[in-house]
Simulated scan of single mutants.
Amino acid sequence: MKKYDCIVIGGGPAGLSATLTLGRARRKIALFDNGTNRNRVTQESHGFLTRDGIKPQQFKNIAIKELESYPSVSVLNETVMGVNKDDQHDLFLVHTSNNQSYITEKILLATGIQEEFSLTQIRQYYGKSLFSCPYCDGWELRDKPLAIIAENDEHINHLTKLVFNWSKDLIVFTNGHQLSNKVQNDFKSKKIKVYTAVIKNLHGNHGYLESVELETGENILRSGGFVVPSFYRPNKFAKQLKCQVDENGGMITDDAGRTTESGVYIAGETEKAGPSSLMIAAADGNKAAFSINMDITLDRF
Rank of each mutant, 00 (worst) to 15 (best):
168 K>Y: 00
169 D>S: 14
169 D>T: 07
170 L>W: 02
170 L>M: 04
170 L>S: 04
171 I>R: 09
171 I>L: 08
171 I>N: 10
172 V>A: 08
172 V>D: 06
172 V>H: 06
173 F>S: 05
173 F>M: 06
173 F>Q: 04
175 N>T: 01
175 N>C: 05
176 G>A: 06
178 Q>T: 12
178 Q>V: 04
178 Q>R: 12
179 L>V: 07
179 L>E: 02
180 S>D: 14
181 N>Y: 06
182 K>Y: 12
183 V>G: 04
183 V>K: 02
184 Q>H: 12
184 Q>E: 15
185 N>I: 03
186 D>I: 09
186 D>Y: 04
186 D>C: 00
188 K>A: 15
188 K>Y: 02
188 K>F: 02
189 S>I: 01
189 S>D: 10
190 K>V: 01
190 K>P: 00
190 K>D: 04
191 K>F: 12
191 K>M: 08
192 I>D: 05
192 I>N: 06
192 I>H: 04
192 I>F: 03
192 I>S: 08
193 K>C: 00
193 K>R: 10
194 V>C: 13
194 V>K: 08
195 Y>N: 11
196 T>P: 04
196 T>W: 00
196 T>G: 03
196 T>D: 14
196 T>R: 06
197 A>Q: 15
197 A>C: 02
198 V>D: 07
198 V>P: 01
198 V>L: 09
200 K>V: 01
200 K>Y: 09
200 K>E: 15
201 N>V: 00
201 N>D: 15
202 L>K: 04
203 H>K: 13
203 H>Q: 13
205 N>T: 13
206 H>G: 01
206 H>D: 14
206 H>K: 14
206 H>S: 14
207 G>E: 11
207 G>W: 13
207 G>K: 11
209 L>N: 03
209 L>M: 08
210 E>A: 08
211 S>T: 12
211 S>Q: 05
211 S>G: 03
211 S>A: 11
211 S>K: 09
212 V>F: 09
212 V>M: 05
213 E>W: 03
214 L>W: 09
214 L>D: 11
214 L>P: 11
215 E>N: 10
215 E>P: 00
